[in-house]
Amino acid sequence: MPAPRLPAWVHAALPPVVLLGLVLLTWQTVAENSGLSAFILPSPVQVAQAAWETRAALGEAVTVTLLETALGLAAALALGVGLAAAMDFSVWLRRALYPLLVASQTVQVLAIAPLLIIWFGFGLLPKVLIVVLVCFFPLAVSTADGLASADPDLVALLRAMGATRGQIWRLVRLPAALPGFFSGLRVAVTYSVVGATIGEWVGGTAGLGLYLLRSKNALATDQVFVAIVITSALSIALFLLVGLIERTALPWYYSRQRARQWEESGIY
């Protein structure tokens, strides 16, 4: 009897879900039977209970963190794409900016965060700025590389057809840059939530970072785990969302990859 065919996304999700289940099961067993106190190693069930008990505070914290993340991502998008466009516009700007951008990434966020708090206070702004700092770089670099990757023969063809520089940008450079842009965006969103949380940890009055800090100070290890799980769940959700948008926005890119896979596996 042939195996029933599963939808593609189930096929993709099944292995990590099974593995995660196994890890949780092992964790639960170890936590229950090792004799370690819940203060050292709370079990997954205890973590879930802690999340439920603090749900009101948690909901508020998630809302604040998500707001900071969204604002920061939006600003990072504008800055990253703007820088990429500037670097594409002029070779001189590219040579001037590129090394500085790379250098900017060697500065530790943990070192910058207190400075931003000192300058801009304990409100929303410094957190948003930290998100921008960790997110604009992958966006700028991958978009700039994407713009540069446009096939010069295609550009020549459009020129031969009498296209203006603006038309070439719109019809060739920009679409060619989109796959690169999206891979930068995927990296950016996975950094973004963590960035916001770090800002809150260093000097926040709300958010997941503060929840984490308070839980740590109260030695509520189960709540520390809650914060960790929620932070990565948010990051994963954003990552998946970007993937979904990308698939909808670039059907040509995915149909081409599929065609390539077929060719490689010799179906044609």
């Binding site: 096939d151 020129r159 031969a160 057809m161 009498g162």
Partner: peptide, 16 residues
């Protein structure tokens, strides 16, 4: 530029 129709050696269709 733009005055004659040109079909280059590669087909160069826009993939998107």
């Amino acid at each position: 530029l733009g005055r004659v129709g040109y079909m280059p050696q590669k087909d160069l269709l826009l993939p998107w």
